[in-house]
Design a protein around this nucleic acid. Structure first.
Lengths: 128, 128
DNA sequence: AAACAATTGAGATGTATTATCATTAAGGGG
DNA sequence: CCCCTTAATGATAATACATCTCAATTGTTT
């Protein structure tokens, strides 16, 4: 059965501390290292994958960057800022919510969808 | 000015030959190598990036895989088959087409969106 | 406490891609 | 048609991100 280790708890704590920042595995590693200096990168990557598989957190695939993680598992969209490369939450009531169809004309079975908006975060959008 | 090299033409030919397969850079390299054995991987990656930046072809970011390329620049959706890992075109007339909003409540500027469906390709969906 | 198995740490390894830089060749001007 | 300039290329090193390997450790069950 799955074991409850100190490392896992520290990783969850780091994710809570960084809530809203959508940190990368490397960023989480750096954060956890401050309280647990002997933790290994391998452990961080392993545990993050495990948690993502369990639905405890979201794994965000970001082009030209490592994966980012989000402990907010409520359904919401993300935007990659093309200027500062940060991932931010999108909060548009009118944002098209995807009703995922189960199949298509050519015989595909559709089980999920990944959506990532591109543009500028509020900070970079205000720059001019 | 931009030069029209033999290498670029061979890469375009390979993309046409592989049309519909959404090949990776590595696959394109292998294909071009058959007619141009001395071509370098660096050239393939460079040219593909250049073409993608010019809109000559689409660059598809696929999780846990290298980028895939598509010389069909007509707007259409893609699905990653979770079984065989192939990228296939989705042809659903009723697939929700995204009207990209220009901004959101929190001040983001939205300029684009990446959408990737997950599921099974027609071949793998028919397996049971 | 003993035993067993899941987990970890350290570092090697793998995969995809870009950087560096000397050499080559595209394409315009004379 | 040849020269010149400079973009483009080829070879390879370097980087980034992530996973694999395996001995050592540590939860958990007995």
């Amino acid at each position: 059965m799955e074991r409850n280790t100190h490392q896992k708890q520290c990783i969850l704590n780091a994710l809570e501390e960084l809530r809203g920042e959508h940190p990368t595995a490397e960023k989480i590693y750096e954060t956890v290292s401050q309280t647990l200096p002997t933790i290994s990168r391998a452990t961080v990557y392993r545990v993050l994958n495990q948690f993502a598989g369990q639905g405890v957190l979201l794994q965000l695939h970001v082009p030209d960057s490592g994966d980012h993680y989000d402990n907010n598992t409520m359904p919401h969209s993300h935007l990659l800022c093309c200027d500062c490369k940060r991932v931010v939450d999108l909060e548009s009531p009118q944002l098209p919510t995807f009703d995922i169809p189960s199949g298509d004309a050519s015989g595909c079975r559709i089980t999920g969808v990944e959506v990532l908006f591109l543009g500028q975060c509020p900070h970079c959008a205000a720059k001019f």
